[in-house]
Write a protein that binds this DNA or RNA. Sequence first.
DNA 1: TTGAAAGCGGTACCAA
DNA 2: TTGGTACCGCTTTCAA
Lengths: 341, 341
Amino acid sequence: MVTMSDVAKEARVSRATASYALRGDTRIAESTRNKVVEAARKLNYTANLSARSLRSGKSGIIGVAIFELDKPYPSQMSATLSRKINAYGMQAIIQQTSISKRNEISILQRVTSQLCDGTIFSPGSISNEEMRALTDGKPMVLLDDPSLHPAFDSVMTAGTAGARTAVMHLISIGCRRIIVIGASLSTMNDPANANTTKTLRLRGCLQAFQEAELAFDDTTFINADHWDPDTARNIAHQLIDSGRQFDGAFCMTDSLALGFMRGLADRQVYVPQDAALVGFDGIKEGGLSLPSLTTVQTDLDDLAAKSVGMLMERINQPQAHLEPQQMTANYKLVVRESSRR
Amino acid sequence: MVTMSDVAKEARVSRATASYALRGDTRIAESTRNKVVEAARKLNYTANLSARSLRSGKSGIIGVAIFELDKPYPSQMSATLSRKINAYGMQAIIQQTSISKRNEISILQRVTSQLCDGTIFSPGSISNEEMRALTDGKPMVLLDDPSLHPAFDSVMTAGTAGARTAVMHLISIGCRRIIVIGASLSTMNDPANANTTKTLRLRGCLQAFQEAELAFDDTTFINADHWDPDTARNIAHQLIDSGRQFDGAFCMTDSLALGFMRGLADRQVYVPQDAALVGFDGIKEGGLSLPSLTTVQTDLDDLAAKSVGMLMERINQPQAHLEPQQMTANYKLVVRESSRR
DNA sequence: TTGAAAGCGGTACCAA
DNA sequence: TTGGTACCGCTTTCAA
């Protein structure tokens, strides 16, 4: 391994000078800097990350910790965040929490807070206090922070407004017997859930129902333990088998929607003829399915710009001890075949 | 930040003793170790990664560098690798190369070779020699290494055997006018391409055609510049618009297959009635599409077990200077609706 | 069985 | 403008 001493020797300067020169400190004479840079290139030198990070506390790395990388939405979000981070000249590393608390702690404690200049974290089962302790004061931006008293900057998806838009759209195309897949109404009973993704989306649904003066009850809202396609596919089977009637469905994520659509097809119920369908997230797969999926699409570029932007601000101004900020990512309704009649 | 000195002081031992105790060195008396461990827990101590890594050259981190995280196959592969790495008690960090050479170099040079005890890398545009230089002798396992003279351990997907299986399956269900989407025959003309994914899969197709004594020519094989759904969708449009007849299609990836299927549907050509369809990879989305997709499924658990296993062996026995090894991941044909007649 | 001390490869203060 | 040097926090050799 070639170290800075090697470079300094090659350029016939001191280690200190070499260090300054390579980082472009203006106090170093241009001619000296050129010598050093040339020597570094000749030796194919790269600064040792551990050493630099140990001494300066900076690594140039931003961590992204996300629940499950094999699901379309988180993977597309991570990819977008990663590119945005690169655009700032930083390296992005992505870690999968698998929604396991042990994993979350391990990631925050052993990697993120140690190595990363900042973290973008999609919290699962870990509390604000634990995060405080584990991040050791390093900047962190949360994605969809459900806590009642935010302790960190965060970027939210437009859960309530988006869900409201989705249901309003179903109503506007003539649906009158609408069901919602993803959460049951009872979720909202517990005040601790006031800001969870489920509650926010439920709230938007209720707004739409009320504005349109459409009746609803407990059976309108169907919980999904896991927001994945197989769960939704089973729900569809049960629903049809039970003889339930509906002419429109809002699924709280696209993954649910695609699974639900498939489940309906398994029972010869077809979208959009028999029931219109709207999802949420805007994953790419929704544009390819048969029929293609109407969805409330979160603008991932905007989400990435906001979260990485906030994080970089904190990193660059660590002294500013501002209140935690909350931003919301843009969204738009993308109308496709699943709601065209 | 709480350091080892703090722990040592709290436990009333020296820093060295604390270090040994925490890592379970047997020379430390049990009672002493308990004191230290207790102190560490009380202070909520975590060893500084940079310091440890700088001094010992080990970090407990394995890097995974993959081309695009927002595509189903690489994202599902990364997720599986990540879990497998965790099962070995190591931390996994995932980085996205975006198939940009600059990015690949940057990742290898600035993060992977610096920080990671080993790397699993899906090479894009970087050469063996460059990798040698950038990894600085650290263990690395390549995924689908296309080089003619492998310089690293690698795990291959069963390109030739898998593609052969796929085409044989189409033949076995009665298809006689089969087309292949993904690469053109001319790809194989350049000897430099002898081991690329495209060539391997082409080779398998040719074997199947020849064994079944089925005619084929240049027009049987249609190139896709990018292996993504939109490209395939366009190909489908062009093919149908040009009046091309076929009763079966093998797409070199599931993403191509799903796009192709959607493109056929855009032109009122339906799978499997009008043409049977087989993909390659085995992404989860293939089980949900309408119709569900027959595919040659790569066993990702097996792929992960093999690649992480090889890597861990290299890490644990750095002295053994064995020849580069090649392994191949298991696969199986998963027959679904797209080829049921 | 434990402790003192020398680094690992950089950074940054201070002096020249 | 440049160089000497202390130090970041941990590991590891060597001595006690």
